[in-house]
Nucleic acid binder design. Structure first.
Lengths: 233, 233, 233, 233
DNA sequence: GATGAATGAGGGTTCATTCAT
DNA sequence: AATGAATGAACCCTCATTCAT
């Protein structure tokens, strides 16, 4: 019995769920203000959105600040008013995005009746999110294993928490007797993330009819994960 | 009964199997000559090796030609004598590396008695290769899904062939009744590549005792793949 | 009766008449702005002036951007902020310079009472301009017949208009009965430009006392042109 | 009465008259040999021909040694065996070409019955030569007034001799009473060269039917020169 | 808060020239 | 005589970042 994924969705906000404003406080020059004006906030959000689309299209290194501010329709100066560097912009995107994922995973973990339900819901949510925001997905894969990337501790921590949440459910499943005991939960968590990410992007890249493809895709991921992990009936 | 993977290995040479020289002829300015001197060939190989290590450490964009030639111990000019651009160097690495993988996969496909044997051998070989040459693996993951990458048709073709070889064995397995019929072979092939790549790099990154870790790792990949695909007994 | 050339001179400004700023708007990255700040405009002009002097001294190919910005006393970056390339800088000079010549020629054409007056005034003005700004003259000759030059359509168009203005007066002269009817006006226009350019530069190169030399020189050009074209009395 | 130009033509040889080998001795490494082998000579000639065509097409600065040796079908090493530098190659072309012109002019000067005959013959020959070898003509114009050009004394000397030969005939014409006494012979010589060069190239550039255009063209040059210089009847 | 002109280090690439073979 | 691999100085251009206004 699968927990309906939709219910786990937090109120729409943030990068990956298409929010329009507010949320994580950066460490930028504006952070000291108790309440940012909505104008400033809108500018910040515009910059993040523009940055995400530019980075998704060309990769982090090839994305230039010029291009980002042009896409955002603001001047170059503001970018450096709201963020301390180009890396700061990019990391904000990643941290916010993964943060949302973590929040959702935590909700799922807390509410799902069984480990199996939780795992399937997590994988499905993950895949859906990437499917609907491939810009973020593309950036995520590229950075996750990019050699020499220099994101902060915060970023590393976020990655670890995301993996830990999956790993925890796998271990819970082993205790519940629904996940094969010989499985290495840490290994499996990485495998899941890698697989979801790569297959999703592959599918999107195919240029199929997305609406139709998505449900088939989620079905496949679910099936794959199920068989890979489930104790034989 | 598993076909011993080792026997499929072609004579050690080339990028990913640690060759020392010779092999694929590039399309560089020098390519028209019938037989490059071994000296020139050595220089070319030095450049490729140096480039691979630099790119693996810092990523393609951050890798500078200056750094590559310094590592190779040659002048900047030769790099452009042997290759037409920085991208050409990088692509040569990728194409040669994937080319070797393809060759090995083809051998496996031709010799393995069953689809299951072939699949396991392929995945095992793939994982082993990445495990032993993480520089190549790192470059491969980074480029495979990098947004806006501009490798040539040749590169695209190589990727497709690699996936096709896996897909073919999955389909063969379905015909042989050992791979679940509801599986989408194309989807599965992508999932396998993504999973092997990401988990391998994760493992290497952990900094464990590699020698020991490797056999456990290969075991896990094999187990995962088996359960995900095999028809329940 | 010769129309006094001086009266045709438009208000002194621009490249060839020694202006200090403003005027033609380039098609550079900054061009979309409604009104550049005078500071930015000054920088742009400094770059053009510096470029002209460097190019005049060493030729386009030998002129380096480094040298130009050094001469202009600005950083390398601004050069590319105001212009899209080295070629763009050079072409701006040419286009602005020829543009001024065209404007003057048009004024002369409109005001001169006879074709003969117009022709003499044009040639005299042309020679004077080159005489006083040999940097521009040198660049002009070099580029006008340089093989493989790749200036834009705008540049080609300007050349054509300049020649057309001369040609029109020659034809007018033929109608007025003061220019020999057997003359090919198009051919003659080219001959005039080539001759003025080459002889002027030759004279300047001689290093004579310029002030004195100039009037003798203009006299000779005028005499030469007169005899070459005039209907015998 | 015009001296038939054709008779002044020296036996076909050299750059501009389409010779096949031999002639001016360079200061290259081969110069000490009393008699170059015909093989070496052929190579040298191939290089000069290739260089001329490349330079004519792209200009001196844009012409690369690589391109020249490729066009000549020889290796890069030989180029530096036969010539000391790229500039040496280019200058050899210029010096040989102008040298032939000088020789022809001297013949004309010695044989023409009157200054008028000589002048017309010279201009006609000059125009014909450029007309038939526009590669040389293009190179000549480009270099003659190129700022910062650094050809040797030999080159300067050749230019001076060419001008001097024209100037001498103009002065002879003044003594003979056929050239207007008020003309400055030195000035006029420069004007003639500049005009012939520029109009010829203009004509060639037009892409007209060359065969037909040429005679009309020569006629115009002759007419122009005649009227510009001749004492009114 | 916001602008856009300015900076300058450094990147990829070209090319005349040299030299071992 | 000839080859072609190798050198390295320079060149054009990019771009993250700063700062006066």
């Amino acid at each position: 019995m699968i927990v309906p994924v939709r219910e786990f969705r937090p109120g729409a906000k943030g990068i990956i769920f298409g929010s329009t404003h507010e949320q994580t406080r950066g460490r930028s020059g504006v952070a000291r203000q108790k309440a940012r004006t909505s104008k400033a906030d809108a500018t910040r959000r515009q910059l993040l959105d523009a940055a995400l689309s530019v980075i998704a299209a060309h990769g982090y290194s090839e994305a230039t600040v010029d291009r980002i501010v042009e896409e955002a329709g603001v001047s170059k100066g503001v970018a450096y008013y709201h963020f301390s560097s180009k890396a700061d912009i990019a990391e904000s995107i990643l941290v916010e995005g993964i943060g949302e994922l973590i929040t959702s995973f935590e909700t799922i973990a807390a509410e799902a009746p069984t480990a199996t339900d939780a795992l399937i819901a997590m994988v499905e949510l993950f895949a859906s999110v990437i499917f609907e925001n491939d810009a973020f997905g593309r950036f995520f894969v590229a950075e996750l294993w990019r050699p020499g990337r220099a994101w902060s501790e915060a970023m590393r921590g976020h990655e670890q928490r995301l993996l830990a949440l999956l790993q925890a459910q796998l271990e819970r499943g082993q205790r519940e007797g629904t996940v094969r005991p010989e499985i290495d939960a840490a290994f499996e968590a990485v495998a899941l993330v890698g697989m979801v990410l790569t297959t999703t992007l592959y599918y999107i890249g195919e240029g199929d009819d997305l609406a139709e493809a998505r449900s088939r895709f989620v079905e496949r991921i679910r099936d794959f994960v199920h068989h890979a992990n489930a104790v034989a009936p």
